[in-house]
Design a binder for these strands. Sequence first.
DNA 1: CTCCTTATTGATAACCGTTATCAATAAGAT
DNA 2: ATCTTATTGATAACGGTTATCAATAAGGAG
Lengths: 153, 153
Amino acid sequence: MNRNGLGRNKGWHRIMHGRGFRVTAPREAVLSVLEKEKTHLSAKEIYAKVIVIEPSVGLTTIYRTLEMLAEMGVINRVEIGDKTTRYEIKSNSSKHHHHIICTNCRKVIDYSEFSEEEKKLFTKMTKNIEKKYNVKITGHNVQFFGICLDCEK
Amino acid sequence: MNRNGLGRNKGWHRIMHGRGFRVTAPREAVLSVLEKEKTHLSAKEIYAKVIVIEPSVGLTTIYRTLEMLAEMGVINRVEIGDKTTRYEIKSNSSKHHHHIICTNCRKVIDYSEFSEEEKKLFTKMTKNIEKKYNVKITGHNVQFFGICLDCEK
DNA sequence: CTCCTTATTGATAACCGTTATCAATAAGAT
DNA sequence: ATCTTATTGATAACGGTTATCAATAAGGAG
Ligand SMILES: [Zn+2]
Ligand SMILES: [Zn+2]
Ligand SMILES: [Zn+2]
Ligand SMILES: [Zn+2]
């Protein structure tokens, strides 16, 4: 175990080396926070949790690390319409999903139990769009807006 | 015809009166810009076009007017992932649609020719989500990301 | 292990889209 | 024409994110 209590040789650890990036304490701390947190965290929220592990880390480094991880494909950026980007890790337990967003309190619910019908249709839609508009589709983002149970009163 | 060359008693004109809002030159100018422009415009782009019609209008008023029109349901806010909100008018000719966004040049293509299958599935998905998560869904936002023809070289 | 190169870091200032403030202006009801 | 008050424009402030740059440290070479 290393200084952060994380096992070494994680998947991203090897990926970072592979891309010529150095494995540093701030980066390990950000990843450890994202790994144990299931919610969608803002840079500032991540920062607050990181400085508990590594008190000397600056907010700038959090932003840089998040940009790098997103670039590497290790995390997803999540936009929920309040001009603050949130982040979530892409692990094998948390796969591609859509979001349900409460327009009142901005709570986010993950929605990943897609039916076969839904999966098939999204595949078909993607193909149709590629053919019709001559574009190469690389991904999609689906948000459902509404009012959550807590806010409904 | 009034000072802006727009016919009076437009739909939104009556709506504004109905809600106790005053019909002013800046508001008419913003609407006239959004009515003749099919693309998704940022506040600054709208501002640039408005001051041609009404040179004294300030950028602040553009923002306020856009917020009001979105609140009234006359226009849509469009987010394309570059932290600048864009706006499009909701006319009977431009109904609900999804967006195809080039991640390279941020061009936006409207996609509104939904198949019956797509329409049905989105209705069903909405109902499922409402039942499963106990939320009242008020809308959805779908984006497909990709590389457009121009950027593909 | 030690040295060296250079990626990375943290503090700080800058950036940029958007909002708040507030006195001056003008819709539109009377 | 008058009066109330919503609206406006100039300006400053705000908040999330980036750029700058000297100091630090990861990790390869020896
Ligand atoms: Zn809520
Ligand atoms: Zn999620
Ligand atoms: Zn493009
Ligand atoms: Zn559109």
